Computed example of a mutant assay.
Amino acid sequence: MLEKAPVEKYENKTKQHSAFSLEKSRNAKRPSVVKIMIYTFLVLLAVICFIPFLMMLVNATRSNEEILTGFQLLPGTSLVENYQTMMNYINIWAGFKNSLIISVLVTVLSGYFSALTAYGFAFYTFKGKNFLFVFMLIMMMVPGQLGLIGFYELSKNLGILDTFIPLIVPAIASPFVVFFLRQYIQTTLHPSLIEASRIDGASEFKIFHTVAIPIMMPAIATMSIFTFIGSWNNYIVPLVVLFSPEKYTLPVLMGFLKGSQVAQNLGSMYLGIAISVVPIMVAFLFLSKYIVNSISAGSIKE
């Protein structure tokens, strides 16, 4: 009996170890099942989100009669006809060019000057700093449509109606972009880097361009997406300040297209919408990739 006790203990330990290993292997398999379920859900969600864009692109190539019969995955053969019908009423490429010029200038200028303003609010001390920042926060809560009449009168007195100036210059001052960039740079840029640059003899603008801007680029790229989309989709202000048809932006032209005889041709309407949406998708894909690369690269390395 004394000799069997160690053997029984060994057998018990072996059974416990095998049971523990079996339980461990089961637990290891569970996360993989959860991952498969999550990935399956995300793929289905991506497909559901992509279906409206696919319908838009396919219907842009189909005739009005084919669209009314129902949706199908295969494209039609009426793309050229729909394009000619649309171009007989509006010059969509002129509106595309105008919207692209305005949106690119607004995005670049707003990103740069908002970053400069945010940098000043974050790292400089001057009289009235807190008052100006609070005033900027209050302006974020005021809808822009409330000042549309006053903005029109001001543009009229300055003689800048029917130009791109009222669409570009006021959009440069964006309180929300300044607020977002200020909060971002305060958490990513340590003041010691600025002091070290000053000790090395760098000027204030050189510090801003060589130290602050690279660190702020992920936030600037993020805000650039929303700035570009907002400027591209802007409809009310161009409709108020622009009078010449050759200066109309794409949303204004699409509004006129909706009220014309082209609205009876659904294929032409889908084609015009597709042309107006594609730049937004391209800009988002490009800038979102840049954001991921910038964040993964890191801003400050110790």
Rank of each mutant, 00 (worst) to 15 (best):
S260T: 00
Y184F: 13
F53M: 13
S294T: 09
F256E: 03
E8L: 12
G111T: 06
A5C: 01
S288F: 08
A115P: 03
A46P: 01
F256H: 07
L189G: 04
F286N: 03
S32M: 06
F179Y: 14
A60C: 11
I185M: 12
Y89V: 10
E8W: 00
N233M: 13
T14D: 02
M140P: 01
V292I: 14
L287E: 05
Q72W: 01
T107N: 02
G272E: 03
Q264L: 13
S155F: 08
L79G: 07
M223P: 02
L42S: 10
Q261L: 13
A212G: 00
M56F: 02
F53S: 13
W232L: 10
F228W: 00
S268G: 10
T210H: 06
N157E: 09
P251D: 14
I229D: 15
F126G: 05
S260R: 05
M223G: 12
I280G: 08
P238Q: 10
P191F: 01
L181V: 03
L109T: 02
V177L: 05
V237Y: 11
G150D: 00
G111W: 15
V277H: 03
M140I: 05
V34T: 07
Y184D: 04
P143E: 01
T85L: 15
G255H: 03
Y119D: 08
I207H: 08
M223H: 12
I194R: 01
F135K: 01
N27A: 14
T222G: 04
